[in-house]
Amino acid sequence: MIGRIGIRPNFWLFPVSLIVILGLASVSPAGLPGAHVAAARPPVQLSSFDIASAVPRPVEETTALSVQRDYAHAWQSLISALESNRADLLNEDFTGGARQQWAEAISLQQRNRLSRRIEDHGHHVRVTFYSPDGSAMEATDTADFDIQYYEGTRILFSEHVRTRYLVLLTPGENSWKLRILQEVPAS
C-alpha cells in the first residue's frame, strides 16, 4: 500500500521522552566524568590580602584591588577546571608554567576519568615581592580546602587540607595572571 507522506505526531512519545530525560537527570553523573559538578560554586573569597610587607616597591592601592580580584578569579577558574576537566577555563587567568602544568593535570584527569572537587574555605594572601618595574608580584597564600577525589562519580577519597602556596603573578593585557602556583610545605 502506498501511503501518504506526512508527519503524524505520536503524542504518546512525549511522556515517554519526558520520563527518559528525567531518568537521565536523576542518574546524571553515571558514566559522565565531572558531571557531579553541575552545581554552581560560590565565589572564592580572599580572607585577607596583606600588602604591607611587599618589597622593594610598595603595592599601589588600585593594583592591590586588581590583584585581589584577579587572583580570586583564578582560583575560581582552577576549581571549576579541575572539577569539570575543562582546561580551557584556565586561559583567562593562567599563563606560562602554571597554565601548562594545570592543563596537563586536567588532561590526565580526563584521560583516566578522574576529577577533583575542591571546596574553598578562604585564602590568606601576603604579598612578599613586587618588582620595581611592576612586572611581577610574588605572594604566599595559606588556604583551606576540602578536596574530594573522584573516579567517575565514585569518591575515592576526601580530605581537609590547610596548605600554603607560593604564587607569582604577572600583568597581562587586562588583568593579572597566575604564572606560578606552587604548593609548598608549611614552614
Binding site: W102, L114, E151, L181, E183
Partner: peptide, 11 residues
C-alpha cells in the same frame, strides 16, 4: 593506585 598532583592525575 591513584595519584593526584599539580601536574597530573594517575590511575
Amino acid at each position: 593506585l591513584y595519584l593526584f598532583g599539580p601536574g597530573g592525575a594517575l590511575k
